[in-house]
Design a binder for these strands. Structure first.
Lengths: 172, 172
DNA sequence: TATTGTTATACTCTATAACTATA
DNA sequence: TATAGTTATAGAGTATAACAATA
């Protein structure tokens, strides 16, 4: 067995491994369901549900959306293109900033989301929440939300790639 | 906003979204680190660390490994091939079952793991555990481990694909 | 000059189905 | 006949770098 430099807290390690495993299994099941129920990849589902629940307008700017989903901007362009082709979102110039593009979910997009949702909720309920009591779900949320906020406090991906671009190599 | 058929528990929804977000952010950071520190993908890292900590022999059969990591068997063959090419694992027939292949981590594999581990632990510590008190890590493990066991109680992927193969279509 | 978004490109990964060999 | 693993193949997805347009 490899023994890393510092003594690793076995409790933390257990939590981490459980998280990885749970996530892999859950994600695989979710992907199956989304594909079968609406021919959607998980990323596409994330885009649509972000737009759906984010605002009254159901809109987002491209970069914000990419950061929200932890995607490269070019990757999001690709996915948004697919969704647009299917009529699930529209893209239009952002008012007030001619550089920007605002993505908006369409009625068809909301309809597809509604079609896919019940099965989605069922998978998540069966796999993730069945073995958890109600207050355990509460506890899980209470644990993970601060973690998310902590992770989000770092600069987003879009900023990072730009920084790399701007940074002069060998700059002393 | 789309309203799915049943009333969805907002607490559960919050926990689920937080889980997805935390996982995406964490995984992206981990992949960066593993790539930089040892030219390893996350899946390859999972294979190696499974082998490393699974047993005294550091061995596993292909199908078991695939199931453990939630991979198709052919996908694992591909990854194992890459690892073998780099001398990080070996593949040899399983004793007692001529059909099987046993994968074993090599000294070079363990060395690479040791090389990559400190940075890996650091990323996980900084991102996941920094905002969590010690007993919160314990609580997280206590919540997720039963969930993992529950998910693992379903038949593994290898069994599923074989079942599909065997099932007669339109069989009444 | 920096930022927004797209495009061109190259590549990694993944899965399905067909195949071989053993139980 | 069912299982273990590989292979061939094809497709989906992702990112990097270069680019055009606006701030």
């Amino acid at each position: 067995m490899v023994h890393p430099s510092g003594p690793v807290d076995p409790v933390q390690l257990g939590a981490y491994f459980a998280l990885v495993e749970v996530t892999s299994l859950l994600r695989h099941a979710i992907e199956q369901q989304l594909q079968a129920a609406g021919d959607l990849s998980f990323v596409q589902f994330q885009v649509l549900s972000r737009l759906d629940r984010h605002s009254a307008t159901g809109s987002h700017r491209m970069t914000d959306l990419a950061d929200a989903i932890v995607h490269s901007r070019s990757g999001l362009t690709y996915q948004a293109g697919l969704l647009e082709k299917r009529g699930l979102v529209t893209r239009a110039p952002t008012a007030g900033d001619e550089r920007g593009i605002t993505v908006t979910i369409t009625d068809a997009g909301r309809a597809l989301l509604a079609q896919v949702m019940p099965g989605h909720v069922e998978v998540v309920s069966n796999l993730l929440f069945e073995p958890l009591a109600r207050d355990s779900a509460e506890a899980l949320a209470a644990l993970l939300e601060p973690v998310r906020d902590h992770m989000r406090s770092a600069p987003p991906r879009s900023a990072q790639s730009r920084r790399r671009r701007s940074a002069r190599p060998g700059g002393a």
